[in-house]
Design a protein around this nucleic acid. Structure first.
Lengths: 144, 144
DNA sequence: TTTCGTGCAAACCATTTGCAGCAGC
DNA sequence: GCTGCTGCAAATGGTTTGCACGAAA
């Protein structure tokens, strides 16, 4: 389990204010299954089901803020809006996206990560912060 | 060099009409350096510099059309609009994106492609159509 | 008390769409 | 001539922003 107290303390040290909205949003995102990725609208809906009301403007601002602070990752799944997920070292960075049913399968591969790091560091002297690999195609279920 | 005659003939056979706009757009995209990726607005600007006027609506419709026909690839570079590039078997699928200067470096790696294919086919029985790998970080020039 | 963060509504901007006229075939 | 394609302008939809108020520190 992740210690939100520590996170908030660090943010406070940086001069940011810890509001109920920021607490609620971060705690909610930590409470859902790892690897789940929600859009701003999804998040608003989920919060409303728990009778929590936060304006869309604040949701967008907070998601952007938490992303800038390295706590969330912004991902694009080929739809017309962005998704966000908790930034986690042990995260899946690989998405299989079915172009028929729009389902996404996530996976990870030490080998792929290692090979990528090797190429990027050695050949391009590039300082990696994050990566996202997307494979588009047709999933097992849709191949009939 | 790619034979546009053949491409247009195929499209005609499928019942699509070959308009000057479609010809112009495809030929323009074929004429720029491989791996270049333009947004709809970029494309409009480039065409206007050659005194070619095509409405934005038509540009968007044509880009979508050519993508659906498998002639272009739609890519997302973390900006607020999509980019398009010629679909090409020998294409770079890997982008290093600098989060400071926004520059993108493209590369390819047989090894990475092979490893990905292997994992995706064997473990997920996933039928690959296209893939895009993005690595975010800080480029050599911005590391000072 | 001093900012910073929030909520509301309006603004923005990339992309899409309805419709009338034009053009490919 | 039929029907699909284009251009224009208006609409759409996700996201951002100006401003006044409320609250964190």
């Amino acid at each position: 389990m992740i210690d939100t107290g520590k996170i908030f303390e660090d943010l406070r040290k940086k001069g940011f204010r810890i509001t109920p909205q920021r607490e609620t949003i971060l705690e909610f995102l930590l409470s859902i299954p790892a690897g789940a990725h929600l859009s701003a609208e999804d998040l608003k809906e989920s919060l409303e089901q728990q009778n929590i009301k936060i304006s869309l403007a604040t949701l967008y601002r907070t998601l952007k803020f938490l992303t800038a602070e390295g706590l969330l990752r912004e991902i694009d799944l080929g739809e017309d809006h962005k998704h966000y997920e908790i930034m986690n070292e042990n995260q899946e960075h690989f998405h299989l996206i079915c172009i028929k049913c729009n389902k996404t399968i996530e996976f990870n591969s030490e080998k792929l990560v290692g090979l990528t790091q090797e190429i990027v560091n050695n050949q391009y002297n590039f300082n990696v912060v994050d990566y996202q690999f997307k494979v588009f195609g047709i999933c097992e279920d849709c191949q009939s």
